[in-house]
């Protein structure tokens, strides 16, 4: 049974000049199709990885999945509910959005430098009204910090007091504090040291087991993909060119583009 499904997803960006310039130069409107007719589905509790080079549209799909962008055409459904249903009240939409959270690429830009870690983690709890009472909220923050391998006393610190890997753990804890069903991971390890990458990936895997989370993993790093994904989709220029399990993809790629991508990855000798 598929849990999160994208159907014929399209996203176009309007890159036209201003109206007056267009009229003076007699040029038509210009569009860029970042995502072109992409369909895939993810089972509950599994990890689906979208791989592709820069500009292949993978981040655009991530943004549409969490609602930062609206699709130009096509739908994304969670548990058979359309995320962009125009008939949904803003209140209902907000509640649905809670179930899909995101871990971002940059551990430096994704945390507000002026906020204490405890406040960063508390904000989703308060915004969605998940836990009442300051004492209970503080307890939940401590619990979250422990779940991602940090100490409860870190709640009083500011983000700049942490390393990149620790910041990414805070980012994961923030995503967890909304109690989501799905977490979109937008290149969560690409800004980290190789030694720290493995730790963060292991944390994500153990959290997946513990809370039966569904991951949509956006990455260009095939080593990361092979260690976490249950299913892989290869994107090229906005279109899904191949979809397979990791074993299949790494041993027997069907498309030229996939083969090129696999060969382009640096290998350790």
């Amino acid at each position: 049974m598929s849990f999160i499904t994208a159907k014929n997803l399209v996203r176009r960006f309007d890159l036209s000049d201003p109206w007056i310039v267009r009229k003076l130069t007699f040029r038509p409107k210009k569009f860029l199709t970042a995502v072109n007719d992409v369909s895939f589905s993810v089972e509950k509790g599994t990890t689906y990885a979208l791989v592709g080079e820069s500009g292949s549209g993978k981040s655009t799909i991530a943004k549409m999945a969490v609602g930062l962008l609206t699709p130009s055409a096509g739908t994304i459904t969670l548990d058979n509910h359309n995320l962009n249903d125009p008939n949904l009240s803003p209140q209902r939409q907000r509640l649905m959005r809670r179930r899909i959270q995101m871990v971002f690429q940059s551990p430096y830009a994704s945390l507000n430098p002026r906020w204490r870690v405890g406040d960063i983690l508390k904000e989703p709890i308060q915004s969605f009204d998940l836990i009442q009472g300051t004492k209970n909220q503080a307890k939940r923050v401590e619990e979250l910090l422990e779940q991602v391998g940090l100490s409860p006393s870190d709640a009083k610190k500011y983000p700049h007091e942490f390393s990149g890997g620790q910041r990414q753990r805070i980012s994961i804890a923030r995503a967890l504090s909304s109690q989501p069903d799905v977490i979109i991971c937008d290149e969560p390890t690409s800004a980290l040291d190789v030694s720290v990458q493995a730790q963060v990936l292991n944390l994500l895997k153990s959290l997946q087991k513990e809370f039966s989370l569904t991951y949509l993993f956006i990455t260009h790093d095939l080593a990361v993909v092979s260690s976490v994904a249950n299913r892989i989709g290869v994107l090229n220029k906005g279109a899904l060119v191949e979809e397979a399990s990791p074993e299949e993809l790494f041993t027997n790629p069907k498309q030229d583009y996939t083969r090129m991508l696999l060969n382009a990855a640096p290998k350790m000798l």
Partner: peptide
């Protein structure tokens, strides 16, 4: 454009809250 603003939008804050609580101090 920074990601912490995107994170604030994900948890359903409105524009005014994002401006006052997240952007203003920075």
């Amino acid at each position: 454009e920074k990601e912490y603003i995107a994170a604030a939008r994900l948890i359903g804050l409105n524009r005014w809250q994002i401006m006052m609580r997240h952007i203003l101090p920075n």
